[in-house]
Structures are given as structure tokens and as C-alpha cells.
């Protein structure tokens, strides 16, 4: 059985045209699945629906989202809160914005652990430091005592991943986790995500518009275009033998190092 099954999911805002239209895909345990597509194609809406955090006015009007045999759409808001953070965690494009700017990382991190586990402050702190070390942050104690603005973009992003992974969720959702970063920092974050899967067996859904990152990390890729999932397949199928013209165009359009040059 798949860890996550999304079946014929349709999401609308204010009863307008669907933002996600009849999308289905499966995520197996230990896989990294990427959703790629241009801005406005509905990929972010899709994973927000899995987390049960659609922006105001958004509603899943049809379909099922099944995590480990339970339909998440049938849970009450209260039950969903228990699922978030424990079974499903999310990393955002800019972790800095999702953190409280006037509190240290330590305070926020410990609080996050305490909502799901009954540990004392010391145990929480040790656990947090351990997670930060796993993310290859060289000086976890300094990071813990910093305010978010004192950390660089790459460090914040790794803190975000560490916080998301602390409760060992079944599923990690990553919404454009590398898009706001420079290329060398992006490589670091990609490295961490890959290690999460290889070393700790994490299951990750990655939303990105960076085809290169998706291609490097994913086992499966879903291509979205104008609310619809136009193609879903293994990484090799999508990258090397795409069946849909749109997928082919999308891959074609990505600038490549050895590729054609416009300038003479």
C-alpha cells in the first residue's frame, strides 16, 4: 500500500475555476516525489491541501487524500492539527518568514517539540541540537541561541528542515525549499534532502520549478500545467522519454550547461 494516495482531487477557491483539477498520484514510502510546473499551475495548492492548510476560500471539492489508510479530508480540524507536525511536516520557500523574528531559534524549536512530545526543556534542547547536527550545521549551540535574522538563508532553511524532521513525520512536504537560495547554498539543501531519504528513509514531496533539482532528487515526477497533472512517471520516464508534448517543451526550455547559445 502506498504511504500517500491522492485520488481525483479537485480544489477550488470561492467556487471559481478549479485550482487543482482531478489530480491523482501515489507516493510510496521512502520515495522523493516532485511536483513541477510553471507558476500558477496548482502545485503549491496541491501540497497545501495535503497539509490541510489551504488559503482562505480554498476547499477540496472532490476526491480523497489518503495517508496510511486514513482519508485526511474526513478528519476534523482538531484531528488534523494532531496530524500536522507529527505525521506530516512542511518546509516553506522562505523559512525565515515562517519563524517569529523576535524569539530565538531555541525558544521556537523547543516549543515546537513540546507540542508533540512530553519532554522537559533539557531533553528538548538536546534533541534539537542533535537534529541540527544531522543537518550539518557546524555550531548548533550558536544557531540555537540566534535570532532568525542572524542566520543566513541556507542556515535558516536547514533549521527549517531540522524542525520539520524532529517528530520523524511519515511525510515531509517541501514547497520550493531551494528557490530563494544561491546555487552553492541550494546544493547544500539538496544534499540534506537527499541524505534525509538515503540515511533516514524519509518520504518527501517536493514542489519546485527547478527541473534540475527535481531531476536529481526525485524517484517520481508529476508535471502540472494549468491545474491538471499532465504526466506522472518515474524520473527517467519524465526526463528521458516524456510522453506529453508539454513535458518535452518544459525540459527543452531549461537552460543547460552544454546547451545551445542564443548569442553569437
Amino acid at each position: 500500500m502506498s504511504l500517500l494516495e491522492v485520488r481525483h482531487c479537485t480544489i477550488r477557491y470561492q467556487n471559481g475555476a478549479p485550482a487543482v483539477d482531478d489530480v491523482s498520484f501515489n507516493v510510496e514510502k521512502g520515495q522523493i516525489v516532485s511536483l513541477v510546473g510553471e507558476s500558477g499551475s496548482g502545485k503549491t495548492t496541491m501540497i497545501r491541501a495535503i497539509l490541510g492548510l489551504l488559503p482562505p476560500g480554498g476547499k477540496v471539492s472532490d476526491g480523497e487524500i489518503i495517508l496510511d489508510g486514513h482519508d485526511l479530508l474526513k478528519l476534523s480540524e482538531h484531528e488534523m492539527e494532531a496530524v500536522r507536525g507529527k505525521d506530516i511536516a512542511m518546509i516553506f520557500q522562505d523559512v525565515g518568514l515562517s519563524m517569529d523574528p523576535v524569539r530565538t531559534v531555541k525558544n521556537q524549536y523547543i516549543e515546537a517539540i513540546k507540542t508533540h512530545e512530553s519532554l522537559n526543556r533539557k531533553e528538548c534542547y538536546d534533541k534539537a541540537v542533535d537534529m541540527l547536527k544531522r543537518m550539518h550545521l557546524t555550531d548548533p549551540n550558536r544557531v540555537m541561541n540566534s535570532y532568525p535574522f542572524e542566520l543566513s538563508g541556507g542556515m535558516k532553511q536547514r533549521v527549517g528542515i531540522a524542525m520539520g524532521m524532529t517528530a520523524q513525520p511519515k511525510l515531509l512536504l517541501a514547497d520550493e525549499p531551494t528557490s530563494a537560495l544561491d546555487v552553492t547554498i541550494q546544493a547544500q539543501v539538496v544534499y540534506e534532502l537527499k541524505e534525509l531519504r538515503d540515511k533516514y528513509g524519509a518520504t518527501i514531496i517536493l514542489v519546485t520549478h527547478n527541473m534540475g533539482v527535481a531531476s536529481y532528487l526525485s524517484d517520481c515526477i508529476g508535471v502540472m500545467k494549468m491545474s491538471k497533472m499532465v504526466e506522472f512517471g518515474t524520473r527517467d520516464e519524465i526526463v528521458f522519454s516524456p510522453r506529453m508534448e508539454y513535458t518535452r517543451d518544459l525540459i527543452e526550455a531549461v537552460p543547460k550547461m552544454g546547451g545551445a547559445r542564443f548569442a553569437k
Binding site: 552553492t184 537527499k194 534540475g212 536529481y216 526526463v239
Partner: peptide, 24 residues
């Protein structure tokens, strides 16, 4: 070279380890 090593090509080899630039 580090910049070039950080570029993920669409047709990249997935088993290639990432050459990381250490530090900030």
C-alpha cells in the same frame, strides 16, 4: 568550479555525489 558543480542539470547522473562548497 564550485559554482559549476552546484548546477543541477536536467539530465544529470543521480548517483553523482554533490560537490559541496563548505562554509558561508
Amino acid at each position: 568550479q564550485a559554482l559549476l558543480g552546484s548546477v543541477f542539470d536536467v539530465y544529470c547522473d543521480r548517483s553523482r555525489p554533490i560537490a559541496l562548497l563548505t562554509g558561508e
